[in-house]
């Protein structure tokens, strides 16, 4: 029913003719819708990017673990072999391999620079463990390692993975809350603009009622104006927002911050929903405001 009303309000071209064009209100509404759509694009991009991040961390890190082997010089190889044997016979371990010197150097390079003398430092050896199905029993594995390779310590990443995934999830939620707030603020501002337009057009309303106009006809005139303005403004704001996102520095060159604030693949279609959503918000806000004002008039 509401959808039909929206369609009628937008498609009925003569309805808003009875309301005089108001340049000031029109410009404000269009600007507000454009600004809100611009912000909504960023909130959407943030939400999608953090969603990807949370998903990646949750899926990638959940399937990996690390065994760190620290032992006195001369016992490292023995402990390493023992740990690998434990891992080989542990259910749920898909594969386990020792990181070579180049990989360890690459891991430490950001902190110690490229010329780190690994052979002279007591750097523990690292075993990368890839989990299979149904996953490993971390506590059981720790007990076995303690018994058979005392220098080996299992790190299943849970300690630091969970807060990161939680933080990413919260960021995603913040993005969604921001979108809801933007929609609410848009509705509030359009309601104020509609109230102002209705108050300024008292004579128009009186004349229309005198000639037998129903409240729905009068409301439709205002609703159509505000719906089209909100749609046009939101469309412009969306285009600007998407362009700004498209021209953001590449995620790789910017140091791979998060997973890159932007859209990937089909995600570029999401901003297309912003302008119609703004139109729906404007339609509902103006309709509610118009009927409330018209009911209050005798």
């Amino acid at each position: 029913m509401r959808g039909a009303g929206l369609l009628a309000a937008v498609l009925y071209p003569r309805a808003d003719r009875v309301v005089p064009p108001s340049g000031h209100t029109a410009r404000l509404t269009i600007f507000t819708a454009a600004a809100m759509a611009f912000l909504a694009v960023f909130a959407l991009a943030l939400s999608l990017a953090t969603g990807r991040l949370a998903e990646r961390w949750a899926s990638e890190l959940a399937r990996t673990a690390t065994v760190r082997v620290s032992a006195p010089q001369g016992q490292v190889e023995t402990q390493l072999r023992a740990a690998l044997e434990v891992l080989r016979t542990t259910p749920g371990v898909a594969s386990a391999r020792v990181l070579d010197e180049a990989e360890e150097r690459a891991l430490l390079e950001p902190w110690f620079g490229p010329d780190l003398p690994l052979d002279t430092l007591p750097i523990p050896k690292l075993i990368e463990v890839i989990e299979g199905e149904p996953g490993i029993d971390a506590e059981g594995l720790r007990l076995r390692l303690r018994a058979e390779a005392p220098g080996a310590v299992l790190d299943d990443h849970t300690r630091w993975r969970q807060p990161l995934v939680k933080a990413a999830d919260r960021l995603r939620m913040l993005g969604l809350v921001a979108i809801v707030l933007i929609a609410g603020a848009t509705a509030a501002m359009i309601t104020l603009a509609a109230n102002s337009a209705l108050a300024a057009n008292g004579q128009v309303i009186r004349v229309l009622r005198l000639v037998g106009a129903r409240d729905s006809y009068i409301a439709r005139a205002f609703v159509r104006q505000f719906t089209l303005r909100a749609f046009a403004g939101a469309l412009a704001g969306t285009v600007l927002g998407v362009a700004a996102i498209a021209f953001l520095p590449d995620a790789e060159t910017a140091g791979n911050f998060l997973t890159g604030l932007g859209f990937r693949g089909a995600e570029w279609l999401w901003p297309l929903a912003i302008a119609p959503l703004a139109a729906v918000v404007a339609f509902v806000a103006t309709r509610v405001a118009a009927f409330r004002v018209l009911r209050s008039l005798t």
Binding site: R209, L210, V211, G212, A213, R214, D215
Partner: peptide, 9 residues
């Protein structure tokens, strides 16, 4: 209100 609008016509 709609009845009144119709009557005014």
């Amino acid at each position: 209100r709609d009845d009144i609008a119709h009557a005014r016509r």
